[in-house]
Simulated scan of single mutants.
Amino acid sequence: MRADRLVSLVLLLRQRGRLSATALARELEVSTRTVLRDIEALSAAGVPVHAERGRHGGFALLPGFRTELTGLNHDEALALLVAGSRRGAQAFGLGSALASAMLKVVDALPESQRDTAAGVAERLLIDPESDLLSRRLVAEEVPDPVAAEVRRAVFAGHKLRIHYAAVGRTPEWRTVDPIGLVTVREQGYLLATRSGADRTYRLSRILAAEELAEPAERPDRVDLDRAWQERSTRFRTGGDQVTALVRVDPARREALVGTALAVLAEEADADGRLRLEVTFQDPRHAEWALWQLATNAEALAPQWLRTALRDRAAAIATRYAATS
């Protein structure tokens, strides 16, 4: 909304001083023409914003134009700034709202705390976009209209109609009773019930959503953490799960455990390698996980998994065989 954008524009100028129209447009994710119109609107409303000409010119506020709120101490503000660096809000379509809120938090601090808190926050990085091996962590994208409609239904306690594309199935409409939203490793989920049965929907697979006027059939209070754990347990123990016996280099144990659903047993062999009994979601998952570990792990059982890995390795070897 334009009112929110105008507030964000003022806060940017307060905190960063002089900024060009191009810089403001980039921060606000609008065109420079829109920024110029917003500047005119602020001036007409009595906000003392003025243009500074020249090569390093831009827009700035007159010195002293600000208000202070002393309700937050240094550590409280720092906690909010660190929380604002997390990308979980993106999964719920709240990324822009969170960025705007962080601007307001910083602006609300007294002068003596504002620079210190912002400087300390710059030295804390939570959940970067890639790990040390430059493997990019890809966050799922949920269209803003879908995320907003789902949020409204969850918060208002209304039934929700969603057009959902389950894996391997034709998308279809269904009406659910929303319970809550969960984000795990950049993936957002809607916890709901349908005809009284628990259901969990990936937000990125909701193609369209419509909040209905009818109240949702759900308890007044909910323990989302407990509900998530219960559904996670059911997920891990259902479907076409595979149990495999794997020998793995101790240095790669965490990589194996991180991809498996569960570790059922573990012991050390005489040569120092670890022998683990682990479960995977399905045969494809098991083959993929063991292939990632290359020679650092060996599937001892079942035989079909050993055969699948051998055939894959043979195909790769054939592809890269020396040609005469």
Rank of each mutant, 00 (worst) to 15 (best):
M1V: 03
R2W: 09
A3N: 01
L6E: 11
L12Q: 10
G17V: 07
S20I: 09
A23G: 03
A25S: 12
S31R: 04
T32E: 15
V35Y: 01
R37L: 10
D38V: 07
L42N: 02
L42K: 04
V47H: 03
R55W: 14
G58V: 06
P63L: 08
P63V: 08
R66T: 11
L72E: 00
E76D: 13
E76C: 02
A77P: 02
L78V: 03
L78P: 00
R87P: 00
R87S: 11
R87H: 14
G88N: 10
G93F: 02
G95D: 15
A99M: 05
M102H: 00
V105R: 00
A108P: 02
Q113A: 11
R114M: 08
D115M: 11
T116Q: 02
A117F: 01
V120N: 03
V120M: 13
E122T: 09
R123N: 10
R123M: 09
R123K: 14
L124E: 05
L125F: 07
L125H: 09
D127E: 15
D127C: 10
E129S: 15
E129Y: 08
L132H: 09
L132R: 04
S134M: 06
V138C: 01
E141V: 13
V142Q: 02
V142D: 02
P145F: 12
A147P: 00
R152D: 07
A153Y: 12
A153Q: 05
K159W: 07
L160I: 08
I162A: 14
Y164T: 02
Y164E: 06
A165L: 12
R169G: 02
R174T: 11
V176D: 01
D177Y: 05
P178M: 10
R185S: 12
E186Y: 13
Q187E: 08
R194C: 08
G196T: 05
G196E: 04
D198P: 08
R202K: 11
I206C: 09
I206W: 04
L207Q: 11
A209T: 07
E211S: 13
E211D: 09
A216P: 05
P219W: 13
D220E: 15
D223P: 08
L224A: 04
W228L: 07
Q229S: 15
R231W: 02
S232V: 04
T233G: 02
R234G: 07
R236S: 11
Q241K: 08
A244L: 03
L245M: 04
V246P: 00
V248A: 03
P250F: 12
R252M: 12
L256E: 00
V257M: 03
V257R: 03
T259W: 15
L261W: 05
A265N: 10
A268L: 10
G272M: 01
R273K: 06
E277G: 06
V278A: 04
T279D: 02
R284W: 14
E287I: 07
E287V: 12
W288H: 11
L290F: 06
W291Q: 12
W291S: 14
W291P: 00
L293M: 06
A294S: 15
A294V: 15
T295R: 14
A297C: 10
E298W: 06
E298Q: 10
P302I: 01
Q303E: 14
W304F: 12
I316F: 15
A317P: 00
A317C: 02
R319V: 01
Y320V: 08
A321M: 06
